[in-house]
Design a binder for these strands. Structure first.
Lengths: 131, 131
DNA sequence: CTAGAACCTGACGTTGGCGTGAGGTTCAAG
DNA sequence: CTTGAACCTCACGCCAACGTCAGGTTCTAG
């Protein structure tokens, strides 16, 4: 596949793919012309990379995890890395859940507050308050 | 309270507090000398700000949420903002959970892989493989 | 009174994950 | 053959949340 196809397939920019290559996350063969050529599996790989990015991992960490995906052979250091990241993720999920709950509380309060003085809503709409 | 006390109390840097002020997230009175003076509640407020930052909200968004904390009066636009952020958070939590599960899968595979060929571990230790 | 800790205001540096040209080559279609 | 899309390599730009240094003032303890 060509770089544009992979980009469209994975929903990222061409620039991003070149950046991943720069970081060593995604290798590509080259055609005689210099154009990059990717296997079809690249799309899935890029999606996974995006997932890890979204989870807050940086390129360096992803780089330490990805080789394992290819080989399915892990050194103790590597599995420890995986465990560390998983634990970090769990902690983060707990934190986010806490924030989510607090936002829910606030929303509960907010609804009551806005239903009380009708002026607020009216003011927000740019209308005068019920003459 | 003085800025150093708040910083230590909330576990952030003095620089961070000045930055929050710059962003309008944390107002401070001034002493005649120009030194900032905070109410005790500032510590809790800063902790909450940190929580929101950790949840991926940016200064602008936090700025839209914080006034509500003080007044407990919300415009429809504000509650919608809260709801949007909560929903975004839920989605993100789901994503992170997905990643977490995938990492767990990988860890399961990794353990088996490293227990099989003892060479890998040995190689990682920098020793030759059991001659 | 004096040292040193804590504070002040700029203002520039950093990091990561790309965006965005500039300027040139290659490919596919008519 | 030509044209326009897609590709290439630099290389600078950007944004957010601070870190950090400079150069100066203020507070507190002995």
């Amino acid at each position: 596949m060509r770089i544009g196809e992979v980009a469209r397939g994975a929903g990222v920019s061409v620039r991003a793919l070149r950046y991943y290559e720069e970081q060593g996350l995604l290798v590509a063969e080259r055609m005689p012309s210099g154009h990059r050529r990717y296997p079809k599996s690249a799309v899935e790989r890029v999606r996974f990379i995006q997932l890890l990015y979204a989870a807050g991992l940086n390129s360096r960490t992803i780089l330490q995890i990805l080789p394992f995906l290819d080989t399915l052979v892990a050194t103790p250091r590597m599995t420890q890395r995986l465990r560390d990241e998983r634990d970090r993720l769990r902690t983060q999920i707990d934190d986010l859940t806490t924030v989510c709950d607090r936002l829910d509380e606030l929303i509960g309060l907010a609804v009551r507050a806005e239903s009380a003085p009708a002026e607020c809503a009216a003011r927000e709409e740019g209308k005068p308050a019920d003459p």
